[in-house]
Amino acid sequence: MSHKPWILGLTGGIGSGKSAAAEAFAARGIHTVDADHAARWVVEPGRPALSQIAERFGAEILQDSGELDRAALRHIVFAKPEERQWLEGLLHPLIRDEIVTHLSRAQSPYAILVSPLLLETSQHQMTQRVLVVDVPEAMQITRTSRRDGVDETQVRAIMQAQASRETRLAQAHDVLSNDRDLHWLEQEVERLHQFYLTLTHNPA
Rank of each mutant, 00 (worst) to 15 (best):
G29D: 07
V130E: 03
H201F: 01
A21W: 02
E60N: 13
H193R: 05
R84W: 01
P136W: 07
Q52H: 10
V33E: 07
E152N: 01
R84H: 02
K4A: 15
V135S: 00
Q140T: 02
E166N: 07
A172N: 05
T167R: 13
E60M: 11
V114P: 01
L94Y: 05
H3N: 15
Q154E: 08
L182C: 05
K80S: 07
A24D: 09
R180L: 02
I53C: 06
I61K: 05
R146S: 12
A24C: 11
A22S: 14
E188I: 06
F57A: 08
E137C: 10
M139C: 07
S145C: 15
N178F: 01
Q107E: 14
H173C: 02
A72C: 09
Q171K: 10
S19E: 08
G15S: 11
S65A: 09
I53W: 05
H31P: 06
H92L: 14
V33L: 06
R143C: 05
V155N: 04
E67Q: 12
Q162D: 00
L73Y: 04
F195W: 12
P45D: 01
W86P: 11
L94M: 13
G46E: 02
T101V: 13
D64Q: 15
Q85N: 15
R146P: 00
F78I: 05
D69H: 13
E186H: 10
V100S: 11
D34W: 07
A59F: 00
G9H: 07
F57G: 07
